[in-house]
């Protein structure tokens, strides 16, 4: 029976799994906001497809979180009953859609990170995570291709699309540093071969983004101050509004099954 907000046991593995699940859910939710409003029907289809992939990944990870915690919670308990400070996604994925360029560049920056991440995590000593990673990698490879192609089209399209894509890249860049952070608790999982060290992926990520930006005639911003805090539950104001939509029915009708 669902009641009010839940607080989960902060074990390193649970926190880690929830963080990855939250990344997928929040980004999937953002992409789903485009459904019916895309710049062309083909993109309504594509963005919805990616939203479905990401929500599917989130469901697998939340279900695993339930097993890890062992408190009898299902996927919906984690998605619908944690407050904003309980969410552990990176700040990048909760940034609003903005225009199509901003959505695409956000997707590029995240996919260029998460696709190699899933590939590396397929070697996790945790069999469940390795299996989830293997499925997710196939999907994120397509997301990366889609975002790359569109970034190139927008950057090397018209003067207007170039300016919009450059602005999106400039504004989202400060959220990329957080992708590579590792908490002290997560460090132990890395050492145990359960999680992987994202720092090892940084050069590869940068190379992908630089190659796409180059073909798109976009300029990579300099690495200045990087925003962080999402993994620790310190979010932008945007996430609370996203959650008040997402969680509305579960909060308004406590305990009801849908």
């Amino acid at each position: 029976m669902y009641t009010g907000s839940i607080t989960v046991a902060e074990t390193p593995l649970l926190r880690y799994v929830l963080g990855r699940a939250d990344d997928a859910l929040v980004l999937g939710h953002r992409l789903s906001e485009w459904c019916g409003h895309g710049p062309m029907l083909e993109e309504d289809m594509a963005l919805s497809n990616m939203a479905l992939d990401l929500i599917g990944q989130a469901r697998a990870l939340y279900t695993y979180a339930g097993e890890v915690e062992g408190a009898g919670r299902d996927e919906d308990a984690y998605a619908y009953l944690r407050d904003v400070t309980g969410y552990a996604n990176v700040l990048l994925v909760e940034q609003p859609n903005g225009d199509f360029a901003r959505t695409i560049v956000r997707q590029l920056l995240f996919s260029a990170f998460i696709d190699p991440y899933w590939r590396a995590l397929m070697a996790s000593t945790d069999q469940t995570l390795a299996a989830i990673a293997a499925k997710a990698e196939k999907e994120s490879a397509y997301h990366l291709r889609h975002a790359s192609e569109w970034t190139i089209r927008l950057g090397d399209g018209t003067a207007e699309s170039h300016a919009r894509a450059q602005q999106a890249l400039d504004e989202l860049w400060p959220f990329t540093g957080e992708l590579f952070t590792v908490s002290a608790a997560e460090r132990g999982l890395v050492d145990a071969g359960i999680a992987i060290d994202p720092e090892a992926l940084r050069a590869g990520w940068h190379a992908i983004v630089a190659r796409v930006a180059g073909r798109a005639t976009l300029t990579l911003p300099a690495d200045g101050w990087m925003q962080r805090g999402g993994r620790e539950g310190r979010h932008s104001e945007h996430l609370g509004h996203l959650l008040s939509d997402l969680q509305y029915l579960q909060r308004a009708f406590p305990g009801a099954r849908w």
């Binding site: 789903s32 906001e33 019916g36 289809m45 919805s48 939340y62 996203l242 939509d245 997402l246 849908w258």
Partner: peptide
């Protein structure tokens, strides 16, 4: 879509609306 009451319902609704687009 953004207010669907469970992740299963959310995924099903996105897929349905996507079908209409198709």
């Amino acid at each position: 879509i953004t207010r669907a009451p469970s992740l299963r319902r959310k995924a099903a609704l996105i897929a349905k609306v996507q079908d209409e687009c198709g």
